[in-house]
Write a protein that binds this DNA or RNA. Structure first.
Lengths: 239, 239
DNA sequence: GCCGTGTGCCAACCTGTGTTATGATCAGAC
DNA sequence: GTCTGATCATAACACAGGTTGGCACACGGC
């Protein structure tokens, strides 16, 4: 499960054993449940074992901005737990299984097994890279480009997580949630998806499943370049 | 200089010594010079010794999005150097002195002195927190709120870095650069600053110096809550 | 069966922000 | 001095995207 950490850094067996020896409490959280709320004091980090979750912030006028989407294998809550007081909320999109790991145990692990510490640090750096891309996406691209970009990101990440084919996947989000990812309104997301479909860049069956007609064209429309995900070479080649 | 790292985690003398023993090459970079360009392969991390710098991304239609602003003491380039290929550019706003530190030396330091490694990790986590706030700022707030928020952030951070008073500081950015931070156009930044001034929330003398009339009101207008900066308690109290 | 609720979809209208364009001011180069 | 290029300022107009409101399903609970 936590072997995703070895993605960017080679780990020794002893390191892997130490990870597996981490104390944790399994927990099931149902759809739309809160894992952490903004301003909470946190004691646990949380590893997503199955399901989908998002992180979001609420702004003054009640608007919501989703800042990232997470899937199986992601360590969603390093951020909040280390910094003690949560600067954002974590919410599930589907029923989820999570493993709650006490903060102390993780800090301890990082000290005793520096390779693991560095691996977790890398994970954080990649997270940050995705945030940067989202700032640019939301700040400087128009609605059509934003959505196309997001769909490309999901396609690649789901594929890497083994949750779907590159050109055909199940999207666990409503249009309202897509709007909160992109800084748009649900109405405009609807319009824009419709026009992407009219252009034959995507097709939708049922209400959540997306299939990408032409990856290259969609990537172009979305100004998408997978570099920011910092995938291993072979997976970057999937594009 | 690098003692900023000890901000979030207590370090022992041996750790501090190890930091100071890091090999580096000093370099002066003039205003608007590039430290790293997107897509470069990087070998060095870069510590800002003096001056101001930004990180930005260029999107498909030529638009630019600034994703963060850095000042004296910030380790600006951990991100790019660890991930090998830069996902964004780093550019100076003023003449700067930087210390270039080879990536190998930093990784090595993190392994040998886990406390320092964890401290750098924390620094990365705080960076990520700021990115999240920026996603929300640019995605879900209107122009007036965005700018007010940004001015509040600068006020606090400059103060913490010892570069200005809370309510009166020198802003090293043009309106065009402010526009690239906020996802607006220079014209609209101008309009909006003017109206903030008309509301007596700020006043400007000369072209770059800002004084904040009423911190509380500006923070309210900017929907600003310093929690995301994860400052130490005494500094958070400055607000 | 019925009803409530969440979601998708659509249309009409409105507004915040972008666009384009023109001057004013200032600092540096020569 | 005066040319040149940045930067700031302002105005008139255009449009992408927000807002409001209404309809139609699908689904689960009763």
């Amino acid at each position: 499960m936590v072997r995703k950490l070895s993605y960017w850094t080679a780990l020794e067996p002893a390191d892997a054993a130490a990870i597996l020896a981490l104390p944790y409490r399994s927990k099931k959280i149902e759809r739309l449940g809160h894992v952490v709320r903004e301003r909470d004091k946190t004691e646990f980090s949380c590893l997503l074992v199955s399901g989908f979750a998002i992180r979001h912030k609420i702004v003054g006028d009640g608007g919501r901005q989703i800042v990232s989407v997470h899937m199986k294998g992601d360590l969603v809550d390093l951020q909040n737990s280390f910094l003690r007081v949560a600067d954002h909320s974590v919410q599930t999109l589907t029923d989820c299984e999570v493993a709650m790991i006490p903060r102390e145990a993780i800090v301890d692990l990082a000290f005793r097994h520096p390779r693991v510490g560095v691996a977790m640090w890398f994970d954080t750096l990649v997270d940050a890279s995705v945030f940067r891309e989202w700032v640019a996406n939301v700040g400087r691209r128009d609605a059509r480009t934003r959505l196309a970009h997001l769909l490309c990101e999901f396609s690649l990440r789901l594929q890497v997580a083994g949750l779907g084919a590159a050109t055909d996947y199940e999207l666990p989000m409503t249009q309202e949630q897509l709007a909160d990812c992109t800084g748009l309104t649900p109405v405009h997301v609807n319009r824009t998806l419709k026009s992407l479909e009219a252009e034959r860049l995507i097709t939708r069956r049922g209400s959540r499943s997306v299939t990408i007609g032409d990856w290259k064209k969609l990537a172009e429309a979305g100004d998408f370049d997978s570099a920011y995900l910092h995938l291993a070479d072979d997976e970057a080649a999937l594009t």
